[in-house]
Design a protein around this nucleic acid. Sequence first.
DNA 1: ATACAAATGCAAATGATTTGCAATAACATA
DNA 2: TATGTTATTGCAAATCATTTGCATTTGTAT
Lengths: 146, 146
Amino acid sequence: MKKQLQPIDAEALLQEHGFKKTPLRIMLLEVLSLSPIPLAVKTLQRKTKKVGADPSTMYRALNAFIEAEIVQAITVDKTKVLYELVQTKNHMHHIVCDSCNTVESIPFCVKNIDQQAINMSRLFKKIYSHQLAFVGTCRKCLRTVR
Amino acid sequence: MKKQLQPIDAEALLQEHGFKKTPLRIMLLEVLSLSPIPLAVKTLQRKTKKVGADPSTMYRALNAFIEAEIVQAITVDKTKVLYELVQTKNHMHHIVCDSCNTVESIPFCVKNIDQQAINMSRLFKKIYSHQLAFVGTCRKCLRTVR
DNA sequence: ATACAAATGCAAATGATTTGCAATAACATA
DNA sequence: TATGTTATTGCAAATCATTTGCATTTGTAT
Ligand SMILES: [Mn+2]
Ligand SMILES: [Mn+2]
Ligand SMILES: [Zn+2]
Ligand SMILES: [Zn+2]
């Protein structure tokens, strides 16, 4: 069965975190909540064009959300930053196409992965989180590219 | 037992890849090969100060090495890019301290992790690589910070 | 309706990385 | 060892994403 995306109650979420309910921030959270994949700033700008916000406002909103842990930035490689809502239920990992840069989020996590890492570490004795990203070539690109 | 770091034969490596043996590139590879952790550009600039290279030269060298797959860039979060030699023997994952940003490389990999990801993917049927980074607070910072 | 703080737009600053180009250094080979 | 070819370098300027200062606007509580 396919995962159903629920539009978030953006206004409620903003209120919970003490943010004012502004058009951009509301739309930002809605766009993010309706996306099955993490989105680049450029994409977010395009998708929220209707409320016409300045780039600086966009960045300020995203950083405020990250600070509040409503949103997380995932960095796939050194040139690509993507934003997604923090999903407390099931955290996500990602697969990136090395050809078209398509990103797929998958609710995947190896059990005990953190503990295994700890066991191998000299410097750490506790881990709070981890980020795992896969790189491959998506089916579409496999057809296209050679 | 502690992992022994072998200084690499930088000149041979450069030759194998058809690079000219210049002072900066030789020292860059030596510095990277002697570091137990991936290094930031600033650190590399400091550690290769003796050969006095322009930043643009440093970046050109690093990008050439990445292109040649001698070096890989790992991106821990959206503001931090680190470089390390590609270790064909045992690929690395990383643990980052959320306080002091210390990075530790660990030769750790969950078996079959790629296949498990594939099984959950709609868009991909093959994965070439993955990057896994852990975040915690290192022992030193646990003592220091509160 | 008023008052205050948060959020915004705009322009300018920042900072890391890249690029064009002329000068230089490395390397092959004569 | 001298010479020619090409990769590599330094420098300055360009680029690009992101951040910041500040005056103005907007949201919200009273
Ligand atoms: Mn996980
Ligand atoms: Mn691995
Ligand atoms: Zn693709
Ligand atoms: Zn630390």
